[in-house]
């Protein structure tokens, strides 16, 4: 099979939700969650996809995984149409939603892993080797047989990420994977994601409100606000090329500045590039 050049390609991707109100006279109001996003993410790249609450990050990720049907525009993920070929696509992606677990609360991670192997149809021998590797690398041995409800959040997230890597995905989507996790566990998770990106060439698509996650994991930063891309640059480029009011600024300051800007303002308007 020819290796893919781009893991993600979107063209003018848009999602509009309709809200109807009133009992007899129905007033329809439309809310534009994603307003024409066009992106290209080369295979193997680590991308931080960030924005304030309600910016359209999760909606975009849900369209890229086939959970939501785009209102218009096109998306191609690993060469597949997410909405039309969801079942085929999800074989090749791993997803971790910090707010939603794929592990069973009352069972140990080991049982959830066994079930996931069955769901993905991983041959028994492959599964045994892969599980052993992930248990060792994510240091899951101590709590592999402990019910998930008794794990700390850091332990649970390690198990979540390991679970999402069982079937050797080509693309890993991480939606706020470090939410609520303490400083040490957070760094640990970031290191593991970086290792996997380097060693297996997994494309990483990360959303997070934590600039530490972004600085540790990402090669490239895409900032969206009000459903539009307002900044797309390499991680080093963002800090090196951007001045706020004539002064150099850290990533957190730049992002905060962008979050506070009105939707219609472009980068040139709100931040003076050096």
């Amino acid at each position: 099979m020819k290796p893919l050049k781009n893991a993600v390609e979107t063209d003018n991707l848009r999602k509009v939700f309709e809200i109807k109100q009133g009992l007899l006279r129905r007033n329809a109001k439309t809310v534009v969650a994603v307003e024409g996003i066009s992106l290209t993410v080369p295979a193997g790249q680590s991308v931080a996809f960030i924005g304030p609450n309600g910016a359209g990050k999760s909606t975009t990720i849900k369209m890229l995984t086939g959970i939501l049907k785009p209102s218009s525009g096109t998306a191609s993920v690993l060469g597949l149409d997410p909405w039309k070929q969801r079942s085929k696509l999800v074989h090749q992606i791993g997803a971790v939603f910090g707010q939603r677990s794929q592990l069973w609360l009352h069972l140990p991670p080991s049982d959830s892993f066994d079930l996931l192997a069955e769901i993905y149809g991983i041959p028994k021998n492959d599964y045994r080797k892969r599980k052993a590797l992930l248990v060792e690398r994510f240091d899951l041995g101590r709590f592999l047989s402990t019910p998930v409800r008794k794990l700390s959040l850091g332990e649970r997230m390690r198990a979540e990420i390991a679970a999402s890597l069982l079937h050797r995905p080509q693309l890993l989507l991480l939606d706020e994977p470090t939410i609520g996790v303490d400083v040490i566990a957070r760094q640990n998770l970031r290191d593991l994601v970086c290792e996997w990106n380097r060693e297996e060439g997994v494309t990483v698509f990360l959303t997070s409100h934590d600039t530490g996650d972004i600085e540790s994991v990402a090669d490239r930063v895409i900032v969206i606000n009000h459903g539009r891309v307002v900044l797309d640059d390499s991680l080093s480029g963002v800090s090196a090329n951007t001045l706020i009011e004539g002064k150099p600024a850290g990533l957190e300051e730049i992002i905060a500045h962008l979050f506070n800007s009105a939707a219609s303002l472009t980068m040139q308007n709100c931040i003076s590039p050096s």
């Binding site: 086939g66 959970i67 969801r86 079942s87 999800v90 074989h91 992606i93 997803a95 769901i119």
Partner: peptide
């Protein structure tokens, strides 16, 4: 709550 179920390579209803 269907999100998690839609991320698996199985037909949604039986799964």
């Amino acid at each position: 709550e269907l999100d998690v179920w839609m991320l698996y390579p199985r037909s949604l209803i039986p799964h």
